[in-house]
Amino acid sequence: MVKSTTKAIPIIEFSSVSFSYGDRRIIKDVSISLPPKKITAIFGGSGTGKTTFLRLVGGQLNPSKGDVFFDGKSINRMKYSDLYSARRRMGMLFQFGALFTDLSVFDNVAFPLREHTNLPSRLIDDLVKMKLHAVGLRGAASLKTAELSGGMARRVALARAIALDPELIMYDEPFTGLDPIATSVIANLIQKLNSALGITSVLVTHDVEVSLKIVDHCIVMAGGEVIGQGSPEEIRKSHNPQIRQFIKGEIDGPVPLHYPSETYEVDLGIKHAG
């Protein structure tokens, strides 16, 4: 019997990807692939290119160099119509939910179904109730978005993100600004949805403790580069000083506390520069 040598195609693959805003390089020659049907966390401090990473996957930004592959096809080389077809297979939870403020909770979740399907309204009603039930908010269907707490808004956005049964869900800072209970609820939902729906999940976050409990794989970014990756256990045990500083939340280290400047004495006029 011939042993199969075919390897599962990673759902997302970065091949030598660089991205710049003008002269500022945000992502520098990154090559990574994300394992399918697993939860991957991308860690990094503010401004390390985490959200840019998600926008590159969604095709909202194009890399200045390299290719971003989604299911084996380059997102940045796709035609407009193919890009929109690819996006139908993705879901994204934005940092603050990005719910449509002029629509109710129900209409927010129904939005992608109404836009992309010709299902009868009765069936859309049932699907929306099922999605809202999955996030524990079936009873909140008639509420306006202004009446929701931060955690509830995030859960409604999650229900909307899974409305079209995507193969990939991206979470942009899913725990930011939430109280401990809401944080646990969202973490639990990410884990449950991933296993129940068999999807690939990507979290970009700087909330290390919560994330390490639920993810299967971690990628740590700093200065637009990948400085380490592995299982949560491997990341916890890493000897890389940058990773250690980030995981332990140390104030000073490879990432300095102070923004680069002249010495304190020179700035105060006590000494002369040079």
Partner: peptide, 18 residues
Amino acid sequence: GIMKSTEQLSAMQMMAVD
């Protein structure tokens, strides 16, 4: 402008809605 600043337009794009 508010839809842009609260990422509602981006969310729409990511839902494959132009």
